[in-house]
């Protein structure tokens, strides 16, 4: 199949950017979207043009490295699918694809389609963990966890930290990412002691970097792991309680 690509090219963080048009020819429908870009890059190198920089690593939808806007959708047209898992059979011969980087002030552009998502790390550093030193844990089965809690925690923990939620959100909000980690840790019995401190700290760092949630649900729709906005509601509840309790105990 043959496609036309309009790709955002930007030489560096402060450089001006623009769309460039490229043709992708003779693409197999069985190849992946990123393999299509590999081929375009091979051609560009052949012609002496700098290849397009894009983010990727595992290419199986788990590391959360990849991601870009494809025709106005984060990670492209297929739901529950990261960019690297998209296959060309999802597209039609002759399609035009517009590729743009994630845009959010919390995700500054590094080059072309590559952005810096370290704001997510700052959120986790604020409290996205259970404080337990290595070697001090009791036997694992001393802490029974109801299966439904374990399952719910796992649903939340499935987040790959790709940033599609922020990218897709019309407000550039980081709620889905933050709430997923909170829901995982706040659901498990191990996470209870720090529950409210964690919630308050993570939310506040989140708000330094990202926008606010107006419950549009675009994040959930873009999430390659289908993380539910129910977790955002949980976070909101815990945050209010946290504010109340932390005041009392401060």
């Amino acid at each position: 199949m043959n496609l036309t690509l309009r790709v955002w090219r930007q030489a560096g963080p402060d450089a001006p950017g623009r769309f460039e048009t490229y043709e992708a020819t003779d693409i197999s429908p069985d190849s992946s979207f990123l393999e299509m870009l590999d081929l375009v890059n091979e051609d560009l190198i052949g012609q002496g043009e700098e290849p397009i920089e894009f983010m990727h690593d595992c290419r199986e939808g788990i590391c959360g490295t990849c991601g870009m806007m494809i025709n106005g959708r984060a990670h492209g047209p297929q739901s529950m699918t990261a960019t690297c898992q998209l296959h060309m059979r999802t597209f039609q011969d002759g399609d035009e694809l517009v590729l743009e980087p994630w845009r959010a002030s919390g995700f500054p552009i590094v080059k072309d389609l590559v952005v810096d998502r370290s704001a997510f790390d700052r959120i986790i550093e604020a409290g996205g963990y259970i404080s337990i030193d290595t070697g001090s844990a009791p036997d694992a089965n001393l802490i029974p966890v109801a299966k439904q809690d374990a399952d719910l925690a796992m649903d939340a923990a499935a987040c790959i930290g790709c940033g599609a939620c922020v990218a897709a959100c019309p407000n550039g909000a980081g709620q889905l990412f933050t709430s997923a980690k909170l829901a995982q840790l706040n659901t498990l019995p191990q996470g209870q002691p720090e529950r409210y401190e964690r919630t308050e700290a993570m939310v506040e760092v989140m708000e330094e970097h990202f926008g606010s949630c107006t419950n549009m649900g675009e994040c959930e729709a873009a999430c390659p792991k289908g993380i539910s906005i129910d977790f955002i509601a949980m976070m909101n509840r815990d945050y209010r309680k946290a504010k109340f309790r932390n005041r009392r105990s401060a």
Binding site: R6, W8, F19, M69, N71, G72, R73, P77, S79, V98, E100, R103, A104, S105, G106, A168, P170, N171, G172, A173, E207, F210, G211, S212, T214, M216, G217, E218, E220, A221, A222
Partner: peptide, 22 residues
């Protein structure tokens, strides 16, 4: 909040958005 959200995406997308849930 609207102001905060504007600041969170000072540069809007250049291509047309294709909303799914919003």
């Amino acid at each position: 909040l609207t102001r905060m959200n504007k600041q969170a995406r000072p540069e809007s997308y250049r291509s047309k958005r294709d909303y799914v849930a919003a």
